[in-house]
Design a binder for these strands. Sequence first.
DNA 1: GATAAACTTGGAACCGGTTCCACAGGCGTC
DNA 2: GACGCCTGTGGAACCGGTTCCAAGTTTATC
Lengths: 335, 335
Amino acid sequence: MPVTIYDVAKEAGVGVGTVSRVLNNNPRVSSETRQRVLQVIERLNFHPSSIAQRLSLRKTLSIGVLAVYFTRPSVVERLRGIESVIADSEYDLMVYNVETPSRRDECFRSTASSSRVDGLIVISLAPADEDVGRWASAGVPVVLVDTLHPTLPCIIVDDISGGYKATEHLIKLGHTRIGFIGDPIHTAFNFRSSRDRFEGMCRALKDHGLAFDPAFHQAGEHGRESARVLTHRLLDLDDSPTAIFAASDTQAFGVLQAAKERGIQVPQELSVVGYDDVEMSEYLNLTTVHQPLFDSGLRSVDLLLHSIDTSDPAPVREQLPVHVIERSTTARPKN
Amino acid sequence: MPVTIYDVAKEAGVGVGTVSRVLNNNPRVSSETRQRVLQVIERLNFHPSSIAQRLSLRKTLSIGVLAVYFTRPSVVERLRGIESVIADSEYDLMVYNVETPSRRDECFRSTASSSRVDGLIVISLAPADEDVGRWASAGVPVVLVDTLHPTLPCIIVDDISGGYKATEHLIKLGHTRIGFIGDPIHTAFNFRSSRDRFEGMCRALKDHGLAFDPAFHQAGEHGRESARVLTHRLLDLDDSPTAIFAASDTQAFGVLQAAKERGIQVPQELSVVGYDDVEMSEYLNLTTVHQPLFDSGLRSVDLLLHSIDTSDPAPVREQLPVHVIERSTTARPKN
DNA sequence: GATAAACTTGGAACCGGTTCCACAGGCGTC
DNA sequence: GACGCCTGTGGAACCGGTTCCAAGTTTATC
């Protein structure tokens, strides 16, 4: 039987309004009364029911984060950025992990029904106009990370530019036959990062007057093992690439594995560039494209909190910088 | 201005009780009335306020997870196990990340104040009797993972046995000079896993009649870089170890790095065993002790849900099995 | 000493659900 | 036709806070 504000009021000989004012540091309470109430609160070990507060304030005091595959290193890093801001706020963090389209739809729907969350951050999932409409009519502010929608604030990195820079790095080293390993063009979640990185690669090739051999584009399920298999396919080609750009570090690790299995020296015989700069990349000395994952999470919460406070869903589009980190998996080609 | 149950009741020409009964599939409603109410709900696009439900039911419908360093691969894997069960339940998942003792204390306290969460899972953090008392008096069921308390249900792996098995594996290969790299004896969070793994190691040595050289015990801040430095210290010794057991895979990676820096061949000149079997270990062919991280999360939610439903906080102590996975970082010593 | 202004305070109404109680009406039984 | 039982329904009370309004008290002003 928990202690309520009424118990405190009766015990202190005051009204509930006064107790509430004390709880909320409202200055319109005499310091004498405040002291008395505080003592009773202490003595009865009273803690206000946060559920009742939420109902009364019509705020849920929680922020939802909707992530795909939240165990992937890049997502974890974003989550850490998000958590670091929320921990210092009055909000709680609710995590929804999505691994299937049906679960995604369910989450999109349930977060739009009123009073689940005060705000929502969606990572790497592209909502349909219909979903956006539901959130809008439920009055739930939403910020997107690593994905776009015309009417919502978005935090993105310029994947096209990232792909461009990675490729340019290889071209400047002297590579002309560059392979690509990425996600399938059409994924269940319609991810665009791998596509955009490839697009950036194509532009860089074109700008430097290089042709792209369609056989050099290999796509398969995201993951190390799949990338390993695809790499073997690339290296089986007659005029195989001297460098491979992988759409993620995880996939780059698969490339390195395949090279090792064939006894191919990296970087002497094959250069490899990844994308994300996850923690393990430094350890494995992988040349990769660094993107500010932690910061992307951080900024998304900033935007969201601002959007909640001002109910001003300015469709900001914030683009964070990327740059190539040169380590030891890239070098001039042998000849 | 959201639609409430009163709007629905008025529109359908029934009482609020009837609407509530329809919402909760209470059979004591004539099918004719039910149809009418459902139509109105559909037409007004009514979604019950989950906050109001929570207040009324006196349940928060959410489960808290309190984790230290939730970006560590081993913690992430546990979280994934937890999330997979909660996603199928009626509960929401609230994540609290702890990186400092003061944040830990704040979280311990806030989760104990009533009506924050219906249940709590604590990962790797040892609560004091005082904290346990607060949760008990607030009526919040708690399950511990990877840590112990006499009056709470706990999911643990037997770290002593894990350390024993890892060491025995090395001894059977013929190693007699085995180094250890682990966390400091006293950490801010009083982690016991590293200590226990070392304890298991000592027992294995003793059971096989081997002495342990105190200089072979190196402890430092958890992390790859620190482990790398400590490894150099071990290898600088006159009679340096032929094998090193690291208290975690992350630390084992640091050991491998130091060996590489010295041009020491693994496993020919140095055997290395890790602990956790995180995803990267398979890739790096690290011999390690596998512990069922995903399952530990899974089981903890099972126990917690049971505890919530029956309010029977049976202080179960469930111990999950561990075993050595032999890969290519261990071999017979050179001589 | 009358009046206004400022400061405190109590408590009803409200947030939006759930649940229990009372009651109406239909039906079967003796 | 008196009684009991079952089904369906309305609505008040309740969960535990916040907030607004009215009223009481004190202080300032002339």
